[in-house]
Computed example of a mutant assay.
Amino acid sequence: MKPYLFLIALLTMLAGCDQQPTGEVMPAEKSANTLRLSDATYVLLRGTHQKSHKKPNGAGFVSMHEFVYAGVDKIAENDVYAVLKNNGYTRKIISNDATQFKVQYYKKSLPPIGAIFVTRAKEGGHETLANIYWQEK
């Protein structure tokens, strides 16, 4: 094989490796900040994962996840929405007042994802507690 053909083939293969992040995480890349959605999609959030649990109800259970973000509620919500938007979700703001910022995210054929963002004062700034939840069977 001629050296220039090898070089062109090598550069072509390497060009395919430069993919933009989509917000979706492969299972091998799971970390503490990875959230598994109801459609089995993994997304990576920038907040720090605090805890996850399932709360039983009459329709099955609610999957609940808590993350902490540095800064105010709008910064935290922008991170969550950017990741979900890349995965086909739309959003609707439910309430926006001094105590909380509440949003629902929708994707066809899936239960809506709810999120409540509460900002609290912290020495040297603010932090936001993000509670993300959805219904599962």
Rank of each mutant, 00 (worst) to 15 (best):
L35P: 09
A98Q: 10
E77T: 00
Y133I: 02
S63D: 12
F67A: 00
H126M: 12
P27D: 02
T34F: 01
Y69W: 08
I8F: 15
I8G: 10
M13A: 15
N86P: 08
T48K: 06
I8R: 08
G88L: 04
V62N: 06
L44D: 14
V103Y: 00
M26D: 07
G16D: 05
E127Y: 09
H49R: 15
T48D: 08
E29V: 06
L84Q: 03
S95F: 05
A28W: 09
V80R: 00
K55M: 12
T34I: 03
G114I: 00
H53P: 14
L35S: 04
L45I: 01
I94E: 12
Y106F: 15
V43K: 03
T90M: 01
W134I: 01
G88T: 07
G58P: 09
R36A: 11
K85N: 13
Y42A: 08
A76W: 00
H53G: 15
H49P: 15
A70M: 15
G125V: 10
G23C: 03
F117Y: 12
Q19F: 11
N96M: 03
A70W: 12
A28M: 10
S95P: 11
Y105W: 08
E123G: 14
P56H: 00
V83T: 06
G58R: 09
H65W: 06
D18A: 14
G114L: 00
S109T: 15
A9Y: 01
P27I: 03
L14F: 12
L110H: 08
V25K: 04
K74D: 14
P21H: 00
Q135K: 02
Q20I: 03
A9E: 01
T41Q: 10
L129M: 13
M64Y: 06
Q100G: 13
A115D: 02
L5S: 07
G23W: 00
Y133W: 09
L35N: 05
E127P: 06
W134L: 02
V68P: 07
S109D: 15
H49K: 15
A59Q: 09
Q50P: 14
G125K: 09
V83A: 05
D79A: 04
S31N: 14
V25R: 04
Q20L: 07
I75H: 09
L10Q: 02
V25D: 03
P3A: 12
V118N: 00
A40Q: 11
S52K: 13
Y105E: 05
K55L: 13
N33H: 13
Y42E: 10
R46T: 05
L10Y: 02
